[in-house]
Structures are given as C-alpha cells and as structure tokens.
C-alpha cells in the first residue's frame, strides 16, 4: 500500500490506507470484482475441485453467452433503454443457422446470415423505439413474444438435431491454443466494444443519451441513429451467442435462451452499469456474468440443490445492487 518508512506512526498510515482503499472501492465495477474474488477464494477453500483448470474452464465457458449478450445490454442500459428480447434473438438466430445448415447452405454463409438476422431484428427493435416512440420495455417485450412464437411455429417444439460438421462444431467446442474458441470470441467482442464505448464519439453519444436525452439532442447528437445502432449491436451479439450455443450443443432447441434475458440484465446491473443510463461499466458486466456462473457452479460443487440456486442468485442481485447504490449515495454526499 502507501505506507512508507518516513511515516512515523501507524495512526497516520491508517487513514491514508483507508482513503486509498475507499478510492479503489469507489471505482466503477470494483464491487462486483471484489465479490467475485472473495467468492473464488471461498470456493477454493470449500471445494478441492473448484480451483482446477478443468473447472475454471467450465465456468468461463458457461459465462460466455451471458457475457457476450451482456456487452450488448451494457450499451442498451447505458443508453437508458432495456432489451428484453435478447434471449429470444439468441434462440431464433441459433435456430436459423441450424435450419440453413441442415438444408445444405454453406456453413459459413449460414452463420453470417444468422448474425445478420440478429442484427436486423435488433434494428427493428430500434425502429419501434425511435419511429413509433414505443418505450423499449414494451417494444422488446413484444418482440420477445413474437420471436418465441415464431420459433415454436417453425419447430413445433421439436429441436433441430445433429449439427455434426467440424467447421460448425469448432465455433462452440474448438480451441485456439489453450483457449476455448468461445472464450476467444468473447475476448474479441469485449476488446472491440470496449473500444467503441470508451474511445469513440459513438460511445460517448450512447452514454450522453442515457444521461440526458434532451441535452444530447441539443448537443447535435442524432438520437435515432444512435438508438437504432445500439439495438442492432445488441441483436448482433445475441446472434453470436446463439450460434455459439447451437454449435456447442450441436442442436437448436425451441427453448434456447429462454429466461436468459434476466441473467443478462442481472449481470449488467451487478457489474455496475446504472439502470437509468448514463454510466456503463463494460468489464463489470463480464465479471458479473462470471460471478453468476460461479455461484451456480460453486453451489453445484457443494451439493446444493439447483432449486435453491435461484434463491441464492436472486438474493445476491438484490444485495449487491443495494450495496453499490448505498456506496454511490454516500460518495455523492449531502449537497
């Protein structure tokens, strides 16, 4: 820490160390990171198996879908909107890829087409929000239902099986060096969108709209263009997650991604992105996704019934968000 030999007494060091600590804790996303590390240490003591390479790879892999979709959600929530259709977009893009591949379309073409499909659906969400002025909650709630319905109509509830093509399997199951390919995709997606969010005018425009849309309009920002693009990004990232999931399970099921929108929103909020928009913590979302997977994984290792896991995760969401809001309220102080 900051203790130096010239400081004469512990009484002087302590407040300084405390101030430093407080500054670290006050950093965006620090809460979720600390919680994640504490949980990892605790689980390492509680279970011999937790801290094995095999298990950690499993944890990371299982976080990939929520993390990738969460990156899109971080943009959406940072802009002051919400996207409830992410799970359904994941489902329909994975299904589309599966059907096209099974009907003989070139595998790469099918994957690209599925990604485009996700982006187009996202853009439609954006148009509903901007052109029809629907609240995003309503627009994407409707979209979720429509897409889930279409999935059921197409499949009749019967999964599309047997996607055993090496090129396609590689997406969800392959390795590049020691790294699972989905993790590589996550890293690439994170790098690209961290750059977009923090280092481009577009990223600032997104957060400005979330902070004060009226002021953003007067500052010359095109609200329509930015909003449609953000929903499109969200759709695209869901499609990426959908293709990875279809590849990993070598099938597209009718219920793929069902309920995942809530995990994605939870990861984003736990990660420190403000629900009302304006501030976004991209790495926090990824850590939030890993944290939720780790809780599930850890509870499994400890033999806790899956039925109780929901309770623990729900309680964790409430506690962590309440804690971070309390901290930020204290930081804002009394004006």
């Amino acid at each position: 820490m900051t203790s130096t030999p010239t400081v004469p007494s512990g009484r002087v060091i302590a407040p300084r160390a405390m101030a430093g600590l407080r500054r670290v804790v006050g950093l965006p996303g620090a809460g979720v990171t600390i919680a994640f590390l504490v949980l990892c240490v605790a689980l390492a003591f509680a279970s011999d198996y937790f801290l094995t390479v095999g298990n950690l790879t499993v944890v990371l892999r299982q976080s990939v879908w929520v993390a990738i979709m969460g990156i899109g959600m971080t943009f959406v929530i940072g802009m002051g909107e919400i996207d409830l259709s992410v799970g359904a977009i994941l489902g329909i893009s994975g299904l589309a890829a599966a059907i096209w591949i099974q009907s003989g379309v070139n595998i790469y073409l099918a994957v690209v087409a599925a990604l485009l499909l996700g982006a187009v659906i996202g853009a439609c969400n954006g148009l509903l929000v901007t052109i029809l002025h629907l609240p995003s909650f309503v627009a994407t709630l409707g979209a979720m239902s429509v897409l889930r319905g279409i999935i059921m109509v197409i499949t009749g509830g019967v999964p599309v099986y047997g996607l055993r093509y090496p090129e396609f399997q590689f997406i969800g199951q392959g390795f590049i060096g020691p790294f699972p390919f989905p993790v590589v995709i996550l890293a690439a997606v994170f790098a690209v969108f961290a750059y977009v969010l923090y280092r481009t005018p577009f990223g600032r425009h997104v957060l400005s709209i979330g902070s004060n849309a009226h002021a953003a309009r007067l500052a010359g920002i095109s609200l329509t263009a930015v909003r449609v693009t953000v929903f499109m990004i969200s759709g695209l990232l869901c499609a990426i997650a959908g293709v990875i999931l279809a590849s990993r399970s070598e099938a597209a099921t009718a219920d793929a991604g069902q309920g995942m929108e809530l995990d994605v929103i939870a990861a984003t909020i736990i990660g420190g992105t403000v629900m009302t928009g304006g501030k976004a913590v991209l790495y926090g979302t990824v850590v939030g996704a890993m944290l939720m997977t780790t809780i599930r994984n850890g509870l499994n290792l400890l033999g806790v019934s899956p039925l109780w896991q929901q309770v623990v995760i729900g309680a964790f969401i409430i506690i962590s968000v309440a804690g971070s809001m309390l901290a930020s309220r204290r930081a804002d102080g009394d004006a």
Partner: peptide, 9 residues
Amino acid sequence: KVAGIFPEH
C-alpha cells in the same frame, strides 16, 4: 439541468 448538462459526467 433539463436540457444542457450531462449531470453524472
């Protein structure tokens, strides 16, 4: 406040 600043930034 309403139309000018981005308050948390």
